[in-house]
Design a protein around this nucleic acid. Structure first.
Lengths: 329, 329
DNA sequence: GTCGTCGTGTCAACCGGTTGACAACTTGGT
DNA sequence: ACCAAGTTGTCAACCGGTTGACACGACGAC
């Protein structure tokens, strides 16, 4: 690879001059500028960004830690985040934690060593202390970590309520909710659990007590909860509406219904969460609660840039959710 | 951030000694080693990998260019690639090209500037010349680029044949195939097109001429070809079996059938490609051709490591595919 | 003629590490 | 007493680029 010295030599100027052209500083005549550009083109010179980053103490890289990009929700998240970050000149270092505490810790360390400018935590099962003395801008997705760390989330409670009200409105007498358990030290900090709380709250306001079932934790895709779900439906044959904490779970429930001969939406109404592409691809189309992922990603990058600029941006950034009604309700 | 000098000072040794501990070279007594480790722990010292990378001229980063991680197939690809690469000490820089030639070119340049040690091309719509003088190990996914560049692919032709034979075996009289068009200068190099060729070949061997339909290119998810597909099915009411070049398209066809009241698999048999999680999540479960993604990713990383070690590894690495029969055939 | 702004070069220090050469001192073995 | 291996330090160069200080010549304006 050509280096700046080669360019200087080829253009017949000094290294400093080339650097000045590269960084647009100081006085440079158009003629020299052209000579240098020409030399760069001929040598196919690309400045070594690592060297520049070293000097500037800024890598323009953001670490993204999520359970798995193979999960449709996180895949979409990663896509938009990469896009938004790219527009601001940042690249994305991808990390799949599988919600494994040890892997997550290793990733955090690795990202630090690799001098990323910030970390986006979409997984976060670590103890708070691991982040505090990290001295790196962090944005947390959907989880409380500490007062210093901004959180991007959606109105989970509101989403749960929307779901509850829709089920009631559609005439459900015996609603249920099904969600995936999470292990790790701080599962209660997971804001996504607000979906369930909102659901239960709205139900209780209406004087209804829903049946709730927690599925074993785990993040394989497909989840493989078929038996567990079928058992649940058999144990509660009176249930005529289910709010699932994610579309993936909702789809599993849908299939269980179809296997058990329960007609959806006539005998069973179903609402998911996330509005993953899958939701609109199946038949019947899945009614679900949509999170504005794109906007959330934009804000995430915004928060990061602000933090890098030294601004304090702690707090919860909650985004409104939409009810997307399709054919399962 | 603490630097090596701070560690040296705290441990009461020289910078060289710390470096020696860090890199396990030269003679070091256990006592000094402990002192240094202790100092590192106390200062939470993490060596600056950028600085090391600069010196070693090796970043341990791999660039991954794919159309979109939000696409379930590429999401899975990215997941496994990150995992396999991570095991060998490499990190992944994520790039979503949207199959846009300009974006792809920019990404390639960016990756080069950022000193990645290799590029995995899962998109590749660029002219060959863009890669040739790149002087970087490259592995291409499912596409021919040049004789120098190894290709990881699956037995697309064989997969197409498997699909054709299954349709015939199941009694289809009027089979069709539907695939997405690709634009860009080298669409013929896309090995995935072999699926269609294999399908047509096996059909023609059986004396059958299938109806084939190319959908407009584009990679949004969901694809939004509903109308186009419905039109196709209306125009060809005699078609009783379809081989789709991807599961996503297959699912769209499935929905179109359900809307049109065509019973699957009784009146219409359907085979997809990729065995994306989606395929097993819907009902009826989608019959499809599975590519061994995990193994392909392992091999990809293997090829990269070998190339970095200076070995020549050109050639086509084709992996066998499986027929996964579910309920649409 | 003098002054100010351009335009460019030289030089050195710096980012945070790595490495080789070499010096010097300690141990232990013979 | 001597030599070899073990241990640590000093020093300088290097990775590839950036930047500030400073010098010097050209050119135009006044």
């Amino acid at each position: 690879m050509a280096k700046i010295e080669d360019v200087a030599q080829k253009a017949g100027v000094s290294v400093t001059t080339v650097s000045r052209v590269l960084n647009n500083r100081g006085y440079i005549s158009q003629k020299t500028r052209d000579k240098v550009s020409q030399a760069m083109r001929e040598l196919r010179y690309q400045p070594n960004e690592m060297a520049r980053a070293l000097f500037r103490r800024k890598s323009n890289m953001i670490g993204l830690i999520i359970p798995s990009v193979a999960h449709p929700f996180f895949g979409e998240l990663a896509y938009h985040l990469e896009d938004c970050a790219g527009q601001r000149g940042y690249r994305l270092l991808l990390c799949n934690s599988n919600r494994d505490v040890a892997k997550e810790r290793k990733y955090v360390e690795m990202l630090k060593k690799n001098q990323v400018d910030a970390i986006v935590m979409g997984s976060s099962v670590l103890e708070i202390e691991h982040y505090l003395h990290l001295d790196l801008p962090i944005v947390s997705f959907d989880r409380y970590v500490s007062d210093k760390i901004p959180i991007i989330t959606s109105d989970n409670v509101g989403g749960g309520m929307l779901a509850a009200r829709l089920l009631i409105e559609k005439g459900c007498r015996k609603p249920a909710c099904v969600y995936r358990g999470v292990d790790g030290p701080h599962h209660q900090a997971l804001l996504a659990h607000g979906r369930i709380r909102g659901f239960e709250e709205a139900m209780s306001e209406a004087g209804i007590e829903p049946v709730c079932r927690e599925l074993p934790s785990g993040d394989t895709i497909p989840n493989g909860n078929d038996e567990e779900i079928e058992r649940f439906l058999r144990e509660h044959p009176e249930v005529d509406g289910v709010f699932a904490s994610s579309d993936l779970i909702a789809v599993e429930i849908l299939r269980a219904c179809q296997r058990l001969g329960k007609r959806v939406p006539q005998e069973m109404k179903l609402i998911g969460y996330d509005d993953v592409p899958l939701a609109s691809l199946i038949l019947p189309g899945l009614t679900t609660i949509r999170q504005p992922i794109r906007e959330m990603c934009e804000r995430t990058v915004d928060m990061i840039v602000k933090q890098i600029d030294g601004q304090q941006v702690a707090g919860i950034h909650s985004f409104p959710v939409d009810l997307v009604e399709r054919e399962t309700t």
